[in-house]
Design a protein around this nucleic acid. Sequence first.
DNA 1: CACTAATGCTGAATCGGTTCAGCAGTGATA
DNA 2: TATCACTGCTGAACCGATTCAGCATTAGTG
Lengths: 337, 337
Amino acid sequence: MRDRVTLQDVADQARTSKTTAHYVLTGQDQKLRIAEETRRRVLRAATELRYRPNLMAKGLRTQVTRSIAFISDTVATEAYAGNLVYGAIAAAAEHGYLLFVCETGGDPELEASLIGDLASRHVDAYVYASLFTREVQIPAELHFERTVLLNCLAADNSSPAVIPDERQAGRDAACALLDRGHRRAIWLVGEPGEQVLAGAQRTEGIRQALSDAGTELAGTVDCKWWPEPAYEQFGAFLDDGGDPSAVICLNDRVALGVYQALKARGRSIPTDVSVVSFDDSDLAAWLQPPLSSIALPHRQMAAEAIRLLMTDGALAEHPVHVAMPVRLRESIGPPRS
Amino acid sequence: MRDRVTLQDVADQARTSKTTAHYVLTGQDQKLRIAEETRRRVLRAATELRYRPNLMAKGLRTQVTRSIAFISDTVATEAYAGNLVYGAIAAAAEHGYLLFVCETGGDPELEASLIGDLASRHVDAYVYASLFTREVQIPAELHFERTVLLNCLAADNSSPAVIPDERQAGRDAACALLDRGHRRAIWLVGEPGEQVLAGAQRTEGIRQALSDAGTELAGTVDCKWWPEPAYEQFGAFLDDGGDPSAVICLNDRVALGVYQALKARGRSIPTDVSVVSFDDSDLAAWLQPPLSSIALPHRQMAAEAIRLLMTDGALAEHPVHVAMPVRLRESIGPPRS
DNA sequence: CACTAATGCTGAATCGGTTCAGCAGTGATA
DNA sequence: TATCACTGCTGAACCGATTCAGCATTAGTG
């Protein structure tokens, strides 16, 4: 820990006062009519001494810390949701902000104590993030602070929020199939109700698009959003005589199970069955054939959340819906003739 | 932003001085002989006013911020490495520390500017993390700070470091096969040299264990550590008459490619071929049959790094090797008779 | 009763950057 | 010569917690 250089040190070396040095170093020399010669002396001294302002002292006076709290329930359990964090870190860094990243594990007490600590540190703003899209009850303390909800919504819509446009994603998934000519025997795999927003909205979008095209879902295979239940349930469906032309999986993990069930029965993708899914996790591109998926734009969502914080997001219309990009790959083909 | 309650407010309400209030609230009342009655008045006032000390003011005076910088190259690109971050966050939280999480993207200029910013904020310590295990050159500035390397090593071994025990993991992978009776036609898939430490050390451990058992690798199928190259190269190997009894994949993504290649050719796992791998990413448990894998203990490694920081890790012997847990699943069976 | 010791508390300086009020010095104007 | 404007700069208070030095008051001792 080398000795820290203070503003006083710089002022001394430049043979001037702390005040003058301050105004020069903060670029307010115009306002204060500092002579060019003095200005240069200060800048030189700062460079030579490798001066770095102490942000604690600055923050103490100005009440600004250039730091943001990123509070999430449990990002860790969903690997691909990490991009919510990294997107926020990157976007904040562009504005000169650093992020305190915290995890509550869904524990309200821990959450309250964390927020207390963060308030003690005078963070400038809060990003309250959820792993999967859902409605949340944000802690009362945050109502008094600058806060943006990321990947979640407040029940009363009181705070700016950024969420993926799941309904449009549902439409896009259906359209990806419709565009290749599918009209009948389109099945949905996954429990629509499992995740408050994603499941219901994806399903809604799908139904709308199919309805607009004058058709409808042939039916639904209910299962948890994991490979194994999907494999079991969808396998059972096939063994019961199920003969889908196309399958829409509510996420990539379900699609993995569906792939496995189809392959185990010698059905080929996309020749026999087309498959489309949601999330576009790493897995999607690794499957054979590569899986078409509607991506969760976690990075863009995080960037948007930071943008709202930086530009007084209260003005924006919210919640902000971020488009989910369609990643078409080889898992979709024309229906069997 | 509600008005902040200061120590002075508490002192006023308790009809005493800032100093007295301070000693009571920091639990140093014994040392200063504070009367029980006064003590209670202060505590009551603090509670009623919901006093929260301003950590900036505290930090300014004491030079302690209870914050740690977590600097990584690009954790984002490897989803499962997120546990390095979350493990560190959780471990730090247990000690009352918060983490500034930063990403350099491997850009030395950005890295230098970040470290400058972090120094301005007077973080108490630094965790310098790498996505995949490798040797790094840490920035000169960090030599003067309390620093621990996570998942990487300094060329000169100058800083405490925490890395996975890849060599033992290699032995364990081999033993998992040896234990089930495999002795011949054990193939390695992946380029041992690709990742400085992981590849070389895993391979070394594998060779040692096989050699100890009086056997050796039948050969190596070289390929990048991704599903597609593994599928291609290993597929070609099979088509060339390759007939492995067991396959050791250098990571789970390679194993995915190997699974696909085997299934495409009608070979069954584990009846025809046993497969073992490294990393134990989510994928491993999702494959069919579930893949045996030697796990990267990212959380434990991060916890260990934080522990080193908290207990003056300079004393510890380093680098610290963290054991990689063996996750046995159904992908390993006895060899064909 | 003077003196010491213990008890219980307070004032003021400090950390380092920010910011307001204001002051020399010079030249121009009345 | 007095007044004014302008240029160029400085001193000191301030943010809020920490910490040292020290001061009343009471109790105990010779």
